[in-house]
Design a protein around this nucleic acid. Sequence first.
DNA 1: TTCCCGCCCCAGTTACATCA
DNA 2: TTGATGTAACTGGGGCGGGA
Length: 349
Amino acid sequence: MELELSLGDSPAPVKATIAPTPVLIPTCMGDEEDLELVLGVRATRRDEQDDQTTCTQSSEEAMEGEEDETRPHGEAPVESLSFPLFVSSAETGSANSEMCTRGFDVNTRPADGGAEAGRPSSPSSMQEASTRQQVADQEAADDEDNGGGGARKKLRLSKEQSSFLEDSFKEHSTLTPKQKSDLANRLNLRPRQVEVWFQNRRARTKLKQTEVDCEHLKRCCERLTRENRRLQREVAELRGALRTTTSSYPPLYGLHHLPAAAGTVFRVCPSCEHSKVVAAAASESFSPRVFAGGGAPAAITATAAVPSPGAGSPPSSSAALFGARRPHFGPFAAAVIPPVLRRQPSATS
DNA sequence: TTCCCGCCCCAGTTACATCA
DNA sequence: TTGATGTAACTGGGGCGGGA
């Protein structure tokens, strides 16, 4: 299964297959916080249509839906729902009763069926066109009955309708025409209502995911800020320690600006004067021979001999330091950091 | 290949119902 | 009564597929 998370601003619809079951995105916040979110946005719509009905079938279903309009509202109870089969008859037994108690006849598919119910994807006959015209006329008449002033009614879906739509959304975040018509028939809603519900549901899911992502980024930012402050404190401490030790040790070129970790070895390239920090064995300890002068390896001598950066001028050249012969000790020379400069293992890390 | 049409989705918005 | 909130419904723009 594939899922491509989009936070919007996607220039083009992102195709992605969707898990048949709710996808749980463990958004780790770092603080033992596991957020659970059902995702289903941008599931492949057209890919799912490979097994859907043809346009002719859709038309037939539309016609069938129009036939359904003639039946009383109670003849398509929620009990007859079979998709997505999450709602048992017992659970939905109160659907109609709640409809009655809430008095939301407005939620049931109107007798005209609405224009959406009869909107075939490919009109194929004059009879169908005629039917659609009748539907449109009836809807227009109903609009006038509703006040005609353009005041749209706010329909509230019943608990059972919403839960069934939710279950369907978990199965498929997008609808094929067949699924839409099936849901509309079984929930006694207009296909347009089902379509709008899924659109709004996808928008809500996306909004929630955006909020979760924003919170995650905020926590990451706070964590990085704390880490940055801690590292800056360490740098300040190391610089202070370095200043206190420069009186007893010759200055190490390039070390004043570098925090040293435990067991760290600075390798200084004598030619380009670039320093490089490499990890050294933890057991490696400060060796007095580094600054002891006689007997010290040439590389260490050269490193210790370079002036401090505060002097404003890097070592003039190896030739100046060693005469005409440039000492050969490889591309980099190693200087072991004295123990006093070594950074203590951080308690936080 | 191009154009047109129908369909669908999305982002944004509006308007209504509900609740504190 | 009123403001906040949730959400159904609408609008406009754009992408995609199919047919002429």
